[in-house]
Simulated assay, not measured.
Amino acid sequence: MEPQGKERYYLVKEDILPEALLKTIQAKELLVRGRVKTVGEAVDRVSLSRSAFYKYKDGIHSLSQLDRENLVTLSFDLEHRSGILSRVLGMIAGREANVLTIHQSIPLQGMANVMITAEISQMKGELDDLLAAVREIDGVKASAVIGRG
């Protein structure tokens, strides 16, 4: 028996889900993609009641929403010299991680901090190995994982 208050999750094939749950997912996707502006428009478009939408919206998610578990945010301290960031990005891409965002601070005293968010579900090798390899690049002074998911 599960301890009280602990959430449990199941992976279920779409064809066995009740219609209200499927329509809730469809309505959420319409909202996320900007095809409708309001919940009212979304539920009208998929023929779902507002009460059903609000009942289920926080409890059902498409599998693609769970991909966030494969996101990692990395921090690097780089010397302010030409080509260093390019070599870091090349190393990440070479391991088949997909760079989603890059944020670089203005260099101060010859150093810049770069934060990179990457999707790592297809990455070859371990994250620690990638960070160690990046630290070997001339001009990289520090590398760390600062967030997951």
Rank of each mutant, 00 (worst) to 15 (best):
M1E: 10
M1L: 13
M1A: 14
P3Q: 10
Q4F: 14
E7G: 11
Y9T: 12
Y10R: 10
L11R: 13
V12P: 01
V12F: 09
V12E: 04
V12W: 03
K13T: 13
E14T: 14
E14N: 13
D15W: 04
I16W: 02
L17V: 04
L17N: 02
L17R: 02
L17I: 08
A20F: 07
A20L: 02
L22S: 03
T24P: 01
Q26T: 07
Q26R: 12
K28M: 06
L30A: 07
V32E: 15
V32F: 13
G34F: 10
G34L: 06
R35A: 12
V36F: 09
K37F: 11
T38L: 11
V39F: 09
G40E: 06
G40A: 10
A42P: 06
V43H: 04
D44M: 13
R45N: 08
R45Q: 13
S47G: 13
S47A: 12
R50W: 05
S51N: 09
S51C: 03
S51L: 04
A52Y: 10
A52H: 07
F53H: 01
Y54P: 03
Y54T: 01
K55E: 09
K55W: 07
Y56A: 00
K57F: 08
D58A: 08
L63Q: 13
L63I: 15
L63D: 05
Q65V: 02
L66Q: 06
L66N: 00
R68H: 13
E69M: 12
L71P: 02
L71H: 14
T73G: 06
T73I: 12
L74R: 04
F76Y: 06
F76Q: 01
L78A: 04
L78E: 00
E79A: 11
H80N: 15
R81L: 07
R81A: 10
I84N: 00
I84H: 01
S86I: 03
S86K: 12
L89P: 00
G90R: 00
R95N: 08
A97F: 01
V99F: 09
V99S: 07
L100Q: 13
T101R: 15
I102C: 09
H103G: 11
H103C: 11
H103A: 15
Q104C: 10
S105L: 10
I106N: 10
I106H: 13
L108W: 03
G110T: 07
M111A: 06
M111R: 15
A112C: 07
I116N: 00
T117D: 06
T117W: 08
A118Q: 04
I120M: 14
S121K: 15
S121R: 15
Q122D: 12
M123L: 08
G125C: 02
E126D: 11
L127C: 09
D128L: 08
D128Q: 07
D129W: 01
D129R: 08
A133D: 13
A133K: 09
A133S: 12
V134S: 00
R135L: 14
I137A: 01
G139V: 06
V140I: 08
K141T: 08
S143W: 00
A144G: 12
I146L: 09
G149A: 15
G149T: 07
G149Y: 15
G149D: 11
